[in-house]
Nucleic acid binder design. Structure first.
Lengths: 252, 252
DNA sequence: CGCTATGTTGAGAAGAGTCAACGCGAGTGG
DNA sequence: CCACTCGCGTTGACTCTTCTCAACATAGCG
């Protein structure tokens, strides 16, 4: 159980023992690659739900991989309005922008209790230089994240409230499915209504009303922090959603 | 004068002669680096305004650098709604996502007549492997573009119509300023109202009304495809805008 | 000259926001 | 054990931003 806000380091998981890497969503790695990755991993930390993993403006951020749990990337305006840029699931990279550029323009916050693999930020350039394969995969993961943000921007800019909600649920469901986190059409769903609102660019009240409407329309059901996608086809139709198929991706 | 929709190849500009690279916005490059970059550049093409530079879904895209002119990156939904993700100015990279992942989820279109430097897509991995410095800079440029998209998503999700217009104008102005494309507070401004609307996530009519309102409020003035930022301070206030200072960046 | 693409304006409709009240469960302290 | 607060979720009533429809202006072009 993660207890520390500061990220306690109990239970280092060696890359060779990674339970995540072996899932079908990820590209197989050679023993060599696993050893190299492991040598770059400087620690394994746990954070409680709600902990900040990266501060907006922070300029000494490490590079993380999310090992377990959910998180989100966000930006806030001076007056406090907050936009959630994308959600992070196991295997996703955190702090790449902050490592490449000199500071992070966004924050990252844990949505559930999480565990992360920590890679030294100072070594990012070293990594590109000495392990081009990993540098390439890092860029790959960055490009993939940008795809998600592109999709969200299109959603917020062009879709109606109902379409946005349906599209977000579908997108998260698809990603969880890929990771084997869905059983019986049911997945963990730790977002509050406010989180949803901030991700969708809608007010809290309107988000709740739209959510309720779609739930009653039979798209999905929620129960104690889980979500069941009752009718995927219907949800797709509500979302004007269409999807690129996803190939196995690199894992750090 | 570019005439070809297909990208004619008159006037190869060698990296050593690049008029862009020497501007203060870009990091100085050693002679070695310039020679290497030049060896990777396979052609120099011109496209007319309105030409597609990258098709949504295209899977054999090359890697471009925008050498002259404006372009934009966009996504369309099945029913035709279009979201402009970000605008591209000289020095910006195009097709990185498409090269790293297997296909582009977005399109790119020329907004003015443009010239681009073409780098072979097949060599992207080779590039990371043999020239880690360039691989790193590519990632850097990717991270920077994501910053722009993050900012746009925040704008579209959280700002009111007037704030959005002001923020977009300011952002483009700042970028042009960096590139030395502003004289007398005046810059080229080739966007149609429809382009603005698609970038801001607003309807055409409302975009026009908001634009007119802010113009009358004295923020900026437009004339024959140019824009003059009459009152930068006032524009900042309308935009709830604040900016990270920009350091010199790599150029490919 | 009439075409078409782009820009402008007004009026009414619809979507989304704001304000306010209330329910509910988890803690907490008397 | 109860009253209390606090965070979160829900709903209704009303407001206002934004969208849609439609008419008209203007400029470029065959």
């Amino acid at each position: 159980m993660p207890k520390s806000e500061n990220g306690s380091a109990q239970g280092f998981v060696r890359c060779a023992d990674c339970t995540l890497r072996v899932r079908p969503a990820f590209k197989p790695k050679s023993d060599d690659e696993i050893a190299i990755t492991n040598s770059l991993k400087i620690s394994h930390r746990a954070f409680a739900a709600g902990s900040p993993l990266l501060h907006q403006g922070q300029n000494d951020a490490d590079l993380f991989t999310l090992f377990r749990g959910w998180a989100f990337r966000y930006k806030t305006l001076p007056d406090g309005r907050r936009q959630i840029l994308n959600f992070l699931l196991p295997g996703d990279i955190m702090g790449l922008q902050a490592s490449l550029l000199d500071a992070a323009d966004h924050g990252i916050e844990a949505l559930t209790d999480v565990e992360v693999c920590v890679f030294a930020r100072r070594r990012t350039w070293e990594l590109f230089e000495k392990l081009p394969q990993l540098g390439y995969e890092l860029s790959w993961l960055g490009a993939r994240e940008q795809n998600l943000v592109d999709e969200n921007l299109t959603s917020v800019g062009q879709r109606s409230a109902r379409e946005r909600v349906a599209a977000l649920v579908l997108s998260l469901y698809r990603r969880c499915e890929q990771l084997g986190l869905v059983t019986d059409r049911t997945m963990l769903f730790p977002l509050t209504r406010q989180d949803l609102a901030d991700a969708l660019g809608l007010s809290l009240v309107h988000t709740i009303k739209t959510w309720t409407y779609l739930r009653r329309a039979g798209l999905f059901a929620t129960n104690a922090g889980t979500l069941t996608l009752v009718n995927p086809r219907l949800t797709e139709r509500w979302a004007s959603y269409y999807e690129r198929e996803m190939k196995p991706r690199p894992i750090l």
